[in-house]
């Protein structure tokens, strides 16, 4: 071989190149963020609904988009034209959620599922900016809230609430001694 790159013969350089091309992406897809743990309170299940497998274990899996006879209180308003139950809930094991990769996760780590689409918000959430933090910011326990503590997973838009009463006017009877 007449020429070489980086002081290496051509075939060795190609080997290295192939090694980098294949191993580079692999190492970056290694799920680093999955190892991070965030202290969260238990997810807000409707009463008596969990574990889901107590009903679903004996039921047949039906992937068809249809009007359900059960779960009538769920109104899907979350990209409902594109989505159906089993896109997020695991068909095989109803007590788990399902990531895009096929990995099954607990409901306690549902933020990973939300973060798959809402990446920017997930980044802010991890930094403690999106959403609410409680407790101690140093020298104690800091609690994160899950996305679903504030946003209903099935219709995530925040509902309007009643405001607290306005302050009394200066001459209000309740303000004057």
């Amino acid at each position: 071989m007449g020429f070489n790159l980086l002081g290496l013969p051509m075939h060795k350089f190609l080997h290295l190149l192939i090694l980098f091309l294949f191993l580079g992406p692999l190492s970056s897809t290694f799920p680093q963020q999955l190892q991070e743990e965030f202290p969260v309170p238990p997810p807000p299940f409707s009463e008596g609904i969990y574990p889901c497998s107590q009903c679903h274990a004996s039921m047949e899996i039906n992937r068809k988009k249809r009007i359900l006879n059960e779960h009538t209180h769920i109104k899907l308003r979350h990209a409902e034209t594109l989505r159906w139950c089993l896109d997020c809930h695991s068909p095989g094991n109803r007590d788990k959620l399902r990531l895009y990769s096929g990995e099954l996760i607990d409901f306690e780590r549902s933020y990973l599922l939300c973060g798959e689409c809402h990446g920017n918000v997930f980044k802010d959430w991890k930094a403690g900016i999106h959403g609410k933090r409680q407790g101690y910011f140093t020298g104690g326990k800091r609690t994160y809230l899950l996305c679903v503590h504030c946003h209903d997973a099935h219709s995530p838009q925040i509902k309007p609430i009643k405001p607290e009463p306005p302050p009394f006017a200066p001459k209000d009877k309740r303000n004057v001694r």
Partner: peptide, 20 residues
């Protein structure tokens, strides 16, 4: 001064308040 969030940060229902 004990490392705890202010009361308004903890009570905000939308998490708009940040402290540090």
């Amino acid at each position: 001064r004990r490392g705890r969030y202010p009361a308004c940060v903890e009570v905000c229902p939308t998490g708009s308040r940040k402290f540090g």
